[in-house]
Amino acid sequence: MADWPLYEVFVRSKHGLSHKHVGSVHAADRRMALENARELYTRRNEGVSIWVVPAKEITASAPDEKEPLFDPSQDKVYRHASFYELPDEVGHM
């Protein structure tokens, strides 16, 4: 499929959540990518909106960047609500 570029497909379900990556399609152009994505990924009411993005336009983090990128967030427990203990009398907060 060297002739037809690869597009990544994102679909938003009707429940108002963000677009979610569902797979990819090859297509000659963007319009066809959208039509192919519709045909392939939304045959059963899976979504109300589709994005197609040329795969080569996506910048992704590399697996060996996992530590520098994500480890710093591991020791910051104070970013979570459960870190703050309050007396029961305060009730739900």
Binding site: M1, L6, S24, L40, R43
Partner: peptide, 26 residues
Amino acid sequence: MAKIQDEAGHGLYLYSAMETLGADRD
């Protein structure tokens, strides 16, 4: 017809997965 169209879709999901390994579909 709907069933057969699903099978075409299954083929395409799988070719896409295969391409992530660096294989060429054609």
